[in-house]
């Protein structure tokens, strides 16, 4: 953590949590500013941001694939389910 980040009172861990908050609930103006400044001065956080985006995209891809995926119950599974209600 360098001096300016210390003044801004934002650790990398807090920055990463703010990043997650941004993706879910959005950030206030001040939070956005703090995060932006932190990332500009912090190479590992910049790298993490890139990883994080890639994971976002990959999960979205999985989500759209899975929404079309059809899985079938085997006969054994069906028998087991029916047995439980008899």
């Amino acid at each position: 953590m360098n001096a300016i980040n210390k003044i801004l009172m934002l650790s990398c861990q807090q920055a990463a949590i703010l990043g997650a908050k941004a993706g879910i609930s959005g950030l206030s103006y001040f939070e956005r500013l703090k995060l932006k400044m932190h990332i500009r001065m912090c190479k590992p956080c910049e790298d993490y941001g890139r990883d994080s985006q890639l994971i976002d995209q990959a999960i979205s891809k999985i989500a759209s694939q899975k929404s079309e995926e059809r899985v079938e119950l085997t006969q054994t599974q069906k028998d087991k389910i029916l047995k439980s209600i008899s």
Binding site: M1, S11, C12, Q13, D47, D51, L54
Partner: peptide
């Protein structure tokens, strides 16, 4: 202190 530990490197 909440800084990335040295062991963590970027993924790709």
């Amino acid at each position: 202190q909440g800084a990335w530990s040295k062991a963590v490197s970027p993924l790709w």
